[in-house]
Simulated scan of single mutants.
Amino acid sequence: MTTLSTGVILYGPPAAGKDTVTHALVEADGRYALFQRLKVGSGKTTGYRMGTVQQLADLEAAGDVIYANSRYGNTYVIDRPGMDAAFAAGVPVVHLGQIDGIRVLVDGYEADWAVVLLWCPQEVTVQRSAGRGDSDTAARLAAWEATRADLDAHPDKVWDLTVDTTTASPEESARLIDQLLARRAGAAAA
């Protein structure tokens, strides 16, 4: 029996703590690393591999786009070569804001995916977005609403773990995720 590589998907609205929890995971255990999606567009570059329209077209032509979505005027891509490299390096942590994206990734890239819902109320998204100096808080609030609607439209989604980031610190959230993966590894070995 072949053991699948393990990956983590963090799902949640803007400012729920995906970046902060990922940082805590990396600090706690160097096996974890943010999967840097290919971003075609402008704006924030940290945490992304910036790409061009031609690179995206080449990936599409090769059948190497696992999932792509558009938000904030940009296109964000999970690509097979990038995912292969991320798994070769350790345990990738993928940030997603759409349940359809989770389904496509889980079905489209063979791995043992742990899916974690990070949640915060809308007013916390407003506070955190303002606190980090976002210039597009209104767009982030629209994305929060879209995430809420996405959750309401998919009541059947079963999370491997749900973390309220208003009550769990980033370090506690990372510990819970790491424990989840340890339990899954133990169950697979049994």
Rank of each mutant, 00 (worst) to 15 (best):
A143G: 00
D29L: 06
Y48Q: 04
A61N: 09
V8Y: 03
L180H: 09
Q36G: 08
L4S: 10
R31G: 13
I99S: 09
G82N: 04
L141H: 12
A143C: 05
T6H: 12
A182N: 02
D112I: 00
Q36P: 01
R132Y: 10
S169K: 06
R71V: 09
M83W: 10
D112T: 00
V8E: 06
Y11A: 13
Q98K: 14
A114W: 03
D178H: 02
P14A: 14
V65A: 10
T6W: 00
V53D: 15
A189I: 00
M1Q: 12
A174D: 09
R183P: 00
A62S: 14
I177K: 11
V124T: 14
P13N: 14
A89P: 00
P92Q: 04
V116L: 06
Q179R: 11
A85W: 11
P170W: 07
R31P: 00
Q179P: 01
F35S: 04
E171N: 07
R132Q: 09
E145P: 05
A15G: 02
A139R: 15
W113E: 09
A33W: 03
L161K: 05
A88R: 11
A28Y: 01
I177G: 14
D64V: 04
G73A: 14
H23M: 08
K18Q: 03
C120V: 13
A143V: 02
Y11H: 14
L34T: 02
I78A: 14
A143D: 08
Y11G: 01
G133R: 10
A68D: 08
N74L: 10
D136H: 15
R148E: 14
D152A: 15
A187V: 07
H23S: 13
D152T: 13
D58Q: 15
E60K: 12
Q36R: 15
G90F: 08
L96A: 03
W144T: 10
V53G: 07
G63P: 13
Y109I: 05
P92W: 11
L25I: 01
P155E: 04
L181T: 03
I9D: 05
H154M: 02
L105A: 11
W113N: 12
A130R: 15
I99L: 15
A86H: 04
A168W: 05
P121M: 02
L38N: 01
V26I: 14
A114Q: 12
R71W: 01
D136M: 13
L151R: 11
Y48F: 15
D178G: 08
D79H: 07
A61T: 13
G101E: 12
L10V: 01
V8F: 04
A85Q: 06
A61V: 03
L34K: 09
P170Q: 07
S169A: 13
T162H: 12
D64C: 06
D79S: 14
A111V: 03
D160Y: 01
